[in-house]
Design a binder for these strands. Structure first.
Lengths: 132, 132
DNA sequence: TTCTTATATGCGCAACTATGCAACTATTAT
DNA sequence: ATAATAGTTGCATAGTTGCGCATATAAGAA
């Protein structure tokens, strides 16, 4: 009974749901800085939420030098398959924006790999007042 | 974005997930005391969790005299349909026990309606040490 | 070795959550 | 009207969660 609860909990946070959505719909393995730039959330939050998603068994990761690529684990049972479909079926503006940001961000990959780190400098350390 | 999050949150609690499961798989409208006897959780908790599920739009209710019958709302979109299927697909011992308790409890309905209140007296007010 | 950089994490805090208890409302029965 | 009963809710509390900040780790670059 713990497992499904933990899965629902993992998806109960907006940042985590946004991350899952990008991983699931893109089908790609994305590094922390790409997710940071796409969601426009502080890097340390992305990192923390990735850890929670991983602990819940929804994602896994693969290290490549300084970069850690996270990807959605292929659903191991019906329950996870349905949740995955549920995430895909969401139609929210925020998610569409994230996906656009990701598309743009993926353009700067070199040979299919991230080489740049976080481009939106204000997301690295401190959260600034947004003057946009 | 608030809505899917609230839905996931609603399903992130064990008691609520158990309630939803009973409502979804039985397809019936169940009153608070039937759920209390089935889940063997204090009545006031069942009541509170029903309120949360209702607020999340997953269930609705229908009053009949002193009884309040809650039922799973037919999923209004793909997202909810998938979640509903996910809940149905769960295979947990606890859920099986709940369903057995419910079947037994439904036997005592008269003309398809509950007439008895809570049968397991210790679930009414105070939570006692279980000597079973 | 030293610097840079991608990612991770300890700390403190404010907000939220589930719970037990007790008291309450609302509806039916006597 | 009074009692009984199905369900609700306010309060206090213990536990959890997400966040900002600062700093740490780890791996490549100079």
């Amino acid at each position: 009974m713990k497992e499904p609860i933990e899965t629902f909990k993992a998806l109960s946070d907006e940042t985590r749901l946004r991350i899952m959505r990008l991983l699931v719909v893109s089908g790609k393995a994305l590094c922390c800085c790409e997710l940071t730039d796409s969601l426009e959330e502080p890097q340390y939050n992305i990192s923390r939420h990735l850890k929670i998603l991983k602990h819940a068994g929804l994602i896994d990761e693969q290290k490549e030098g300084r970069w850690v690529y996270s990807y959605a684990v292929p659903p191991a049972n019906q329950f996870l398959k349905y949740l995955c479909e549920a995430v895909k079926s969401l139609d929210e503006e925020q998610l569409a924006r994230d996906e656009q940001n990701l598309q743009a961000r993926l353009q700067v990959r070199v040979n299919g790999k991230c080489t740049l780190g976080i481009l939106k400098a204000h997301l690295i350390g401190v959260k600034e007042a947004s003057n946009e």
